[in-house]
Amino acid sequence: MIPFIASESASPVDVQLLTLGTTIVVFVVFLLLAMKFVWPQILKGLDQRDEKLRGDLEAAEEARQQAKSALAEYEQELLSARTEAGEMIAKARNDAKAAAEELRENNTRELAELKKAAATDIESAKKAAISDLHAEASTLAVAIASKVLGRELSATDQQSLVDESLAELTRSSK
């Protein structure tokens, strides 16, 4: 058996002053050494790590905010560009429509003018032709009449004969 400090009657609540003093000395020495060589290093490391984490978190938050505002700005620009493009397309469509309409009107007008000019030309040609025909017919009729009658017709006879012939020709042509 180990020679115990106390015998069988020893109690765990007996306080040995020597042990108590040793405890205080050992702990105080340990505390002083730890305060000198351990805790400054550990606590400084923890503080630096805290600062690093806090700095990184703040930087990340700032970057997130910047990205968020950039995205909002981009979306805004995209929206305005889309609106502008829509307006441009609508304007171009309207312009094209107006141009086509104008072109169509011009064509119609020109066509009408051409048609009218052609009708006028035809009428003029018709009148000229009829006039030429009248002159030719009268000359021919005088020549024929002269030969039939054997004499020269006076200017008055000639004119009345022409007129009658023409009147008759006109009736027969209808």
């Binding site: 050992v26 702990f27 020495v29 340990f30 550990i42």
Partner: peptide, 27 residues
């Protein structure tokens, strides 16, 4: 006594372990 020796051992072990940890924890 054995408790005194244990106390001293505990102080040495605690100091050494904390010192090693301090070196690793430091930036």
């Amino acid at each position: 006594t054995t408790h005194m020796a244990s106390l001293l051992l505990a102080a040495i072990v605690t100091f050494v372990v904390l010192k090693i940890a301090a070196k690793r924890i430091a930036i």
